[in-house]
Amino acid sequence: MGSRVELHLDQAALRRMLTGPSGEAVRLVRRAQRATMNQGRLRAPVDTGFLRSTHQATGIHVTGLRVTAEVEATADYAAGVHEGTRPHIIRPRRARALAWQGPSGLVVARSVRHPGSRPRPWLLNAARAGAGRLGFTVTPGG
C-alpha cells in the first residue's frame, strides 16, 4: 500500500510569491524594464543628447496578478520624434518673424510650412529588443 501526501498552496500565498515586492513576476518585469531603458538610451536619436538623457523608469505596479512598469522619455518633443508629426505651420512665438541663414543669405519669414517628420519609434524597438529577450511580447501601447 502506498502513501500519498497532498500539498496545497492557497491563492494568497501564491499571489505573494508571484507579485510580492520580491516575487518572481516583479523581478522579471524589473529586469525587462531595465533592459528596455538601457536599449532606449542606446537607440534614441541623438542631436544634442538631451532626449537620450531624459529616459526614466517608473515604479513597478501590481494590480491583482498584473504587474506593470513603464519606461518613458520626458523631453517635451519625445512623442513627436517617436510617433512622427503631421505637416504643420511654424510661427514665431516671441518675435514678429522667423529668421535663419540660408545658402543665399539671411531668410526672413512670418511662418514656415513644415512637411512633418517620419516616426522614429526607438523606445518601442528598445522594448522589443530588451524585454523580448526575456520572453515578453511587445505591442505598441498608448
Rank of each mutant, 00 (worst) to 15 (best):
M1Y: 07
M1L: 12
G2E: 09
R4E: 11
V5P: 01
L7P: 03
L7Q: 03
L7D: 04
L7A: 13
H8N: 14
L9R: 09
L9S: 04
D10K: 12
Q11M: 10
Q11R: 15
A12Q: 14
A13N: 10
L14E: 04
M17H: 04
M17S: 10
L18T: 05
T19G: 12
G20M: 02
G20P: 07
S22W: 11
G23K: 00
E24N: 10
E24G: 08
E24S: 13
A25V: 12
A25D: 12
R27K: 14
R27Q: 13
V29F: 03
V29H: 04
V29P: 07
R31N: 11
R31K: 15
R31V: 00
Q33M: 07
R34F: 14
A35H: 00
T36S: 00
M37S: 10
Q39I: 10
G40I: 03
G40S: 09
R41L: 09
L42D: 13
R43S: 13
A44N: 11
P45V: 03
V46R: 07
D47R: 15
D47N: 11
T48H: 08
G49V: 10
F50M: 10
F50I: 12
Q56Y: 08
T58H: 01
G59I: 03
I60Q: 04
H61P: 00
H61V: 15
V62E: 04
G64A: 13
G64R: 07
L65V: 05
T68K: 10
A69S: 11
V71S: 03
A73H: 07
T74C: 02
T74V: 02
D76V: 12
D76C: 01
Y77E: 09
Y77P: 02
A78G: 02
H82Y: 11
H82S: 00
E83V: 09
G84M: 05
G84N: 09
G84S: 01
T85F: 11
P87I: 07
H88A: 08
I90D: 04
P92L: 01
R93Y: 02
R93A: 14
R93N: 03
R96S: 10
R96G: 15
L98M: 03
L98N: 06
Q101A: 13
G102F: 05
G102R: 04
S104Q: 15
S104P: 00
G105W: 13
A109F: 01
S111N: 08
S111R: 13
V112I: 15
V112C: 04
R113I: 14
P115K: 14
P115M: 12
P115I: 15
S117M: 13
R118Y: 12
R118V: 06
P119M: 12
P119Q: 03
P121S: 05
L123Q: 06
N125I: 14
A126I: 06
R128S: 00
A129K: 03
A129N: 09
G130C: 02
A131I: 00
A131C: 01
A131D: 00
L134S: 04
G135S: 07
T137P: 04
V138M: 01
T139E: 13
T139G: 05
P140E: 07
G142V: 12
G142C: 11
